[in-house]
Write a protein that binds this DNA or RNA. Structure first.
Length: 429
RNA sequence: GCCCAGGUAGUGUAGGGGCCUAUCAUGCAGCCCUGUCACGGCUGCGACACGGAUUCGAAUUCCGUCCUGGGCGCCA
């Protein structure tokens, strides 16, 4: 019976393990084969004078990164990594690895991100990289758990759409039989339609597509969006939820992934709630005193401005009370001052993580706002229709999964947070 | 879309007109080595993205092509 490497302890007497040959150190009469599976490392020690002939032959044949099965006696010893080693009685090469390897799993020599992504399957054998995706899995699980505990319905909406959701961003066009179609940039309109359907609380964790030709360490052309929408809720309610989601997933990662965090060698701290909240106007003031460029009320926050404010805040924070003019048409204006709306962004000191708002649920006001943005209500008919038949007030947000993981683990490049990133140039693997 | 920077063995690098028959590390192959943990020692293998130009001479300068990284704008 094969057991995981982490189950081989100083108490173990015999074991069968399967793993990859991580490193070989041949000292002559004595050879050490470091075996790796996803749970850890185990040293197989071969004493050449004593080992069976078949073990010697197989071991000689086993190149680095080959998959091997070893059975043998386990001995506790201070001299071995992990305090124990296996003395192979059988040694079988299950799948031999070619040499040279496309990159060095043992990380004696670094590899560039491009080389790593071209060979992601082998890059992901590195414990540090595997750790990222174990943590990402835990994050998604923590968030999903929280949504279910709070009574959300998990929905799946179409990624093939006929028109732009929000204007602004570029879309990937698609040949859809005799029609023109696009890959969806956001589930926004569909989430809102499900409010009209009376689902009250929905979430979706799914890909979004943006055809922007940017080339940065924080943009992807295919990203994963964590989206929620709640009826009878305002922007304050969903900001509270967002705070619970972020703190909740950090907490669960801290509890469940100590080994992965350790493998990554990072300082991991759960952020403290509540997150500070500053208004857009305050954010502009902070930026204005710390950066060179002219910035005034009504401008979008430039990258430099975002960074300056982030440095000042030093932790997660919300920016609230945005000018209606620079937020999407569906953001609800304040009743007493419609030039400001109930939209917010959740910021990490490094970058924006999420944006959300209470939405406009009144049909006529929505049409007005669509027109105010220079868009045509006719092309939004499928979206506007639900607003005429009993649309409850509602609010929601979208949170970028990759940015969440990237900032959580202090990754230098967002591509590190995706197994198979799609960027300006990369479509394979 | 705009603006930078860059492509040298499998990987990561040095070298910016002649000292280059191209450095170092890792890897791979062979030999030596019984407690390594970045094992060590010796020998060897393996590369200037492509095309053109300048020059007595180009990895190095220039032009073009292809590929890539990054910044900005926009966005999550």
């Amino acid at each position: 019976m094969r057991i995981p490497i982490s189950a081989v302890t100083t108490e173990t007497t015999e074991a069968e393990v399967i793993g990859w040959i991580h490193e070989v150190r041949d000292l002559g009469g004595l050879a050490f084969y470091i075996l790796r599976d996803r749970t850890g490392f185990l040293q197989a020690t071969i004493v050449k004078k004593k080992a069976p002939e078949s073990v010697l032959a197989a071991a000689k044949d086993a190149s680095r990164e080959s998959v091997v099965r070893i059975t043998g006696v386990v001995k506790a010893t201070e001299k071995a990594p992990g305090g124990r080693e296996i003395l192979p009685e059988t040694f079988e090469v299950i799948a031999k690895a070619d040499a040279p390897l496309p990159l060095d799993v043992a990380e004696k020599v670094p590899a560039e991100i491009d080389t790593r992504l071209d060979n992601r399957f082998i890059d992901a054998r590195r414990p540090r990289v595997a750790g990222i995706f174990q943590i990402r899995s835990t994050v998604q699980n923590a968030i999903t758990d929280l949504f279910f505990r709070e009574g959300f319905i998990n929905i799946t909406t179409s990624k093939i759409v006929a028109a732009a959701t929000e204007g602004g961003t570029e879309l990937f066009p698609l040949a859809y039989f005799e029609k023109e179609a696009f890959l969806n940039q956001s589930p926004q309109l569909y989430k809102q339609m499900m409010m009209a359907a009376g689902f009250e609380k929905v979430f979706e964790i799914a890909p979004i597509f943006r055809a922007e030709e940017h080339n940065t360490t924080r943009h992807l052309n295919e990203a994963t969006s964590i989206d929620v929408e709640i009826s009878f809720a305002d922007h304050e309610d969903v900001m509270d939820l967002l705070e619970r989601v972020v703190v909740g997933c950090y907490t669960k990662v801290a509890e469940e992934c100590p080994t992965a965090i350790d493998a990554m060698g990072i300082d991991f701290a759960v952020p403290n709630a509540p997150f500070p909240r500053i208004t857009y106007a305050e954010a502009i003031d902070i930026a204005a005193i710390s950066i060179e460029e002219d910035i005034t009320y009504g401008d979008d926050l430039s990258t430099a401005a975002e960074k300056a404010i982030g440095d000042e805040m030093g932790e997660h924070y919300f920016i609230t009370d945005w000018p209606t003019a620079i937020k999407p048409y569906y953001a609800m204006p304040f009743e007493d001052d419609p030039s400001v709306c109930k939209a917010f962004d959740l910021m990490h000191p490094r970058m924006e993580l999420s944006s959300g708002a209470q939405r406009i649920h009144q049909h006529d006001l929505l049409v007005e706002q669509i027109q105010a943005k220079g868009l045509s209500p006719e092309s939004f008919e499928f979206y506007l229709k639900p607003f005429r038949y009993g649309m409850p007030p509602h609010a929601g947000w979208g949170l970028g999964m990759e940015r969440l993981v990237m900032t959580m683990l202090d990754l230098p490049n967002i591509r590190e947070a995706v197994l198979f990133p799609r960027d300006r140039h990369r479509v394979t693997p």
